[in-house]
């Protein structure tokens, strides 16, 4: 008994070498290309934008603000409390820390978002302040350096800028390291500095 010969696999469906690729193969290549494009662009976009975000000095928080990254407001409050400052929580999670030495009032208001500091308003007020003491400058320096406590270069820039404005008794604004600084100097009686991250 003889068996009927099995036709060779692919017989009758062999690609036409003169007519190009089959539609099925072209569509398969297209699908692969789409997946490659999706993944490649996704990874590239993530790496590029992620790299830019990683290099920034402020973190996303809320819709129209940015925060000091990594540094929890509670950590700052703890440091101040250990130094004898009195801290309290206000509406919307804001923290206010005060210290009165004689008639000199030190006050720091921290706007907090999800545990991070979004805005700082720091002031030293003394009705009879006739000179800016080292203690008052140290107070302003410390808060101004919170975003970059580990960057001596930026810390030096900020301290130099504050010192210059206080010596000149001059109110001014500046952007240093991605943060907006506004200093108000009313003679030596009232020193106030506001620190907030730039949106872009």
């Amino acid at each position: 008994m003889t068996t009927e010969p099995t036709p060779p696999v692919g017989a009758g469906t062999a690609p036409d070498r003169r007519g190009g690729l089959s539609w099925r193969r072209v569509l398969l290549v297209g699908a692969v290309a789409a997946v490659v494009g999706l993944a490649g662009a996704g990874i590239a976009g993530y790496l590029v934008i992620g790299g830019q975000e990683k290099a920034r000095t402020s973190a996303n928080c809320g819709t129209l603000q940015r925060c000091i990254p990594s540094l929890k407001a509670a950590t700052v409050v703890d440091a101040l409390t250990q130094r004898g400052h009195e801290c309290a929580e206000q509406e919307q999670g804001a923290r206010v820390c005060t210290l009165a030495i004689g008639e000199t009032k030190y006050q720091a208001l921290l706007a907090v978002w999800d545990g991070l500091i979004a805005d700082m308003n720091v002031s030293v007020w003394s009705p009879e302040g006739r000179e800016v003491t080292p203690g008052r400058l140290a107070y302003l320096f410390w808060f101004a350096a919170l975003p970059y406590g580990d960057d001596p270069t930026l810390v030096g820039q900020i301290e130099g800028w504050i010192t210059e404005k206080v010596e000149k008794l001059e109110s001014a604004q500046a952007t240093i390291g991605g943060y907006r600084y506004e200093i108000t100097v009313e003679e030596a009686r009232n020193l106030e500095i506001r620190v907030m991250a730039e949106l872009r």
Partner: peptide, 28 residues
């Protein structure tokens, strides 16, 4: 999607502790 993910999920890192206070820093 990659841009959004990079913008929303990648966060910069900074110091986790405040800088040391100077000796002149006001004390209670």
């Amino acid at each position: 999607a990659g841009v959004l993910a990079g913008y929303l999920w990648v966060e910069p890192t900074g110091p986790t502790t405040p800088p040391a206070m100077a000796a002149d820093f006001p004390h209670g």
